[in-house]
């Protein structure tokens, strides 16, 4: 462990600089600069098509940027394939769930745990069981993931990502469609994960849920970061009000 001069100087897990990606004339990421501190919970908001999911895809390696750099714990991962970034500690949920449909719920987690942590299957049974308990999927453990409801699939996305034992967890809209009570549950779960040391980056349209967890918020629009800072302050800022009144109107 390197010496830490002080708490305020806590390490950066994720550093992004000059990151750009275009699809034809659409700019999904436009010169993005962003650093995520170890252990923090960062929220991302922005209108539809702002480039939020694209940013995740660039961080995980599902997309290769046109320009810019991504560092994980100081190490350049910009050109690394997704599976290697996962082994280095990045895990994600997909906005549109991608379960392994022909595998059971438990086997979905088993893939994450055995590959993400490079361990033998029998050594991760306990871990998978605990993640299933924590995410409320234990009673579904041995049924095919293809037979889950949409909400359960979203929970499976979270569970499978957790099973990889991530250092940074990227969550892409997992609260949509939940009831008040379910949101309260989810918020408690994510707080707990964060409290146990996992860094969280959370994209969410359900702002109330997001604000209950994150300590910092950024706003994306047309692929650019247009605001950043303390969540309440950002929510009250002119930039955000402009966008959201623009949408609501």
């Amino acid at each position: 462990m390197p010496d830490r001069p002080g708490l305020s100087d806590s390490r950066m897990v994720l550093e992004i600089a000059g990151l750009s990606k275009s699809f034809g004339s659409v700019r999904a990421a436009d010169n993005i600069l962003l650093a995520v501190r170890e252990g923090e919970a960062l929220g991302i908001i922005g209108p539809n098509g702002a480039g939020k999911s694209s940013l995740f895809n660039l961080i995980t390696g599902d997309l290769v940027p046109d320009a810019g750099e991504i560092r994980l714990n100081g190490r350049d991962v910009t050109r690394m394939p997704p599976h290697r970034r996962c082994k280095l500690g990045i895990a994600r949920s997909y906005q549109i769930p991608h379960p392994f449909e022909n595998l059971t719920v438990f086997e979905n987690l088993l893939v994450g745990a055995a590959f993400g942590q490079d361990k033998h299957e029998r050594d991760v049974a306990d871990l998978c069981g605990q993640v299933l308990e924590r995410t409320g999927l234990l009673h579904r453990a041995n049924i095919p993931a293809g037979s889950l409801t949409l909400l359960e699939r979203k929970r499976l996305e979270l569970a499978r990502a957790l099973a990889t034992g991530p250092q940074v967890l990227l969550l892409d809209e997992i609260a949509g469609g939940l009831t008040e009570a379910e949101i309260a549950d989810l918020v408690a779960t994510i707080r707990e994960i964060n409290a146990s040391g996992t860094t969280i980056v959370w994209i969410e349209h359900v702002v109330a849920a997001l604000l209950a967890v994150v300590t910092r918020l950024i706003v994306l629009n047309f692929g650019s970061k247009i605001a950043e800072g303390e969540p309440q302050a950002v929510m009250n800022s002119k930039e955000v009000r402009d966008i959201y009144t623009g949408i609501e109107a």
Binding site: P82, F115, G116
Partner: peptide, 25 residues
């Protein structure tokens, strides 16, 4: 084997398999 589990994951979703650490290539 573990490799077979990875193969089954790739068969269902190559993108998701990669995202949890399976080297599909």
């Amino acid at each position: 084997s573990r490799r077979g589990l990875g193969l089954a994951a790739i068969r269902d979703s190559e993108v998701a398999a990669e995202s949890v650490g399976v080297d599909s290539f």
